[in-house]
Structures are given as structure tokens and as C-alpha cells.
């Protein structure tokens, strides 16, 4: 395993991350840590950026260390590296954006147990060079972010009539706000709809 590198063109890595292996509607992975904050686009955006960066940077680090890491402690090393980057994000948020840090509550820390991060480190970074690992992590994270941001936009618009806190025409004035969208059940319903849509498209494409 050590030293072997599987070459995969950058374009393929990007497409896989965004669609073909999309973590959410392909594998239903890693929704826990972010779904809870999708009732607000800004919170989701910050979570998604953090997650993408953590995935990319831990992928890169795991990959850079792959030739020295003994196999027996592989998982521990990965967890340690992921936790390292998550703590950096947490410290920076607390120091420079305290309100956001409070809004996200425990969810920043939960990036550690997000299956996507660990999954990319294990499946890709362990056998690839640092730069492709970085790309792979970044675009897996972005594929995930696109889906969650769509969910968040939908929930915030229908539930509060705003997007990123800005009042939207029609929705902020004439729309009878669907409070349920801001509450937890809304998250489940919208995610289910997104899954349904993406999977139906995929089934069509295959047949």
C-alpha cells in the first residue's frame, strides 16, 4: 500500500466529488453534523466551508504522512489530524466570529465524526499524493456543500422569507411563513425531497 499512487486526472476527481460519488445522495453520509444548521443559509455556508477545508487539509496531511505512518495506528493518526484541523477552525471562529461560533454550538466539533472526512482520508488520501488528495477532499466537501446549501436556501426562504438574512421580494411580504421549515421536521422533509429528485434523475440517466 505504501508508496503506491493511483493516478486519477484532476477533472475526474472533481466530477466524482460533485456528482458521481456525491456523499449525500449517493452514500447518505455525513449529514448529521450539518443538517441541524440548515435552517439558516449563513450558518450552513460557514459549516460547509469549514467542512470542505478540513476534509481537504486533513486529506493532504494524511497523504503527506502516508509513507511513514505505521498501518496499525492509521485510524488514530487520521482522527488526530482531523481533530487538529477542526480545533483550528473552532479556535479561529471563537476568536474572530464569536456569534457564529455560538450559533453553530457543538456542530463544528462534530465535523470530527463526519463520515465524509474520515471516509476521504481512508479511501483516497491513504494511497494518493498530497495535491490530488487536497483536490479530492475539497471537491467532496463542495459536492456536499451544494446539496446542503440548496436545502438551507429552501428552508430559510419558505420559513423566514429571507436568504442570508436579506428579505426576499414576495416571500418576506405576502408569503405566509411556513414555520415548520425552520423547525427540525422541515430539515428531514427537504432532504428527503432532494434525495428523491437526485435519485430520480440518476435512474432516468441510467435507463
Amino acid at each position: 500500500m505504501n508508496g503506491q499512487t493511483v493516478t486519477k486526472p484532476a477533472k475526474q476527481i472533481i466530477l466524482d466529488g460533485l456528482w458521481y460519488d456525491n456523499a449525500i445522495f449517493r452514500q447518505i453520509l455525513g449529514i448529521c453534523s450539518t443538517l441541524a444548521v440548515t435552517n439558516n443559509v449563513l450558518n450552513t455556508l460557514v459549516m460547509c466551508i469549514s467542512l470542505s477545508l478540513v476534509t481537504a487539509l486533513s486529506g493532504m496531511t494524511v497523504s503527506a504522512l502516508r509513507n511513514w505512518t505505521p498501518r496499525s495506528v492509521r485510524m488514530m493518526v487520521q482522527t488526530l489530524i482531523i481533530a487538529f484541523f477542526v480545533i483550528i477552525v473552532d479556535i479561529l471562529l471563537r476568536a474572530y466570529w464569536p456569534e457564529m461560533s455560538r450559533n453553530l454550538g457543538p456542530y463544528v466539533g462534530l465535523i470530527i465524526t463526519n463520515c465524509i472526512v474520515m471516509g476521504r482520508c481512508e479511501a483516497f488520501a491513504g494511497t494518493n499524493r498530497p495535491w490530488p488528495s487536497f483536490l479530492d477532499g475539497l471537491f467532496s466537501g463542495l459536492g456536499y456543500s451544494v446539496v446542503l446549501l440548496a436545502i438551507a436556501a429552501f428552508r430559510e426562504l419558505l420559513g423566514m422569507g429571507t436568504i442570508l438574512g436579506f428579505a426576499m421580494p414576495y416571500f418576506s411580504t405576502h408569503w405566509d411563513k411556513w414555520i415548520i421549515m425552520v423547525m427540525p421536521p422541515g430539515g428531514f422533509f427537504v432532504l428527503a425531497m432532494v434525495l428523491w429528485l437526485c435519485r430520480s434523475v440518476e435512474i432516468k440517466r441510467k435507463s
Binding site: L65, W68, T69, P70, S72, V73, M76, V77, L80, I81, F84, I87, I88, I91
Partner: peptide, 16 residues
């Protein structure tokens, strides 16, 4: 493996 874990933990922790 033990030394490796120890060194890595120490390096990352001190950075944090």
C-alpha cells in the same frame, strides 16, 4: 508506532 503517535500528538498539540 508508539513513538510516531507520541511525536505526532506532541507536535500537533503544541501547535494548537
Amino acid at each position: 508506532a508508539v513513538v510516531y503517535m507520541f511525536v505526532l500528538t506532541a507536535v500537533l498539540s503544541s501547535m494548537l
